[in-house]
């Protein structure tokens, strides 16, 4: 689940909530759904809580090799 994209996790979470609200799940299903939903919401929250952004820039050395360096121009990040 950890490598799920946020979008997928969110969509799945919405689906689970709707199903649960419809109330047509069996007890077992609703327990499973609840567990999955909590995990998904944690995953989403975790993704949202990720640390500061990286702003980087692609640079090429003399041999045209690509390097990725931090971008100094993102002064607002300061």
């Amino acid at each position: 689940m950890d490598d799920m994209k946020f979008e997928e996790a969110l969509a799945r979470l919405e689906e689970i909530v709707k199903k649960m609200e419809n109330g047509d799940l069996t007890l077992e299903e609703s327990l499973d759904a609840f567990e999955e939903g909590i995990k998904l919401s944690r995953l989403c929250a975790k993704k949202l809580n990720e640390a500061e952004r990286r702003v980087e820039i692609l640079l090429k050395d003399e041999d045209e090799n690509v390097e990725i360096k931090p971008f100094a121009g993102d002064t607002e990040n300061g």
Partner: peptide
């Protein structure tokens, strides 16, 4: 979205 990662290709 303060934590979005960005890569600039100048």
């Amino acid at each position: 979205y303060p934590s979005i990662d960005i890569l600039i290709a100048p």
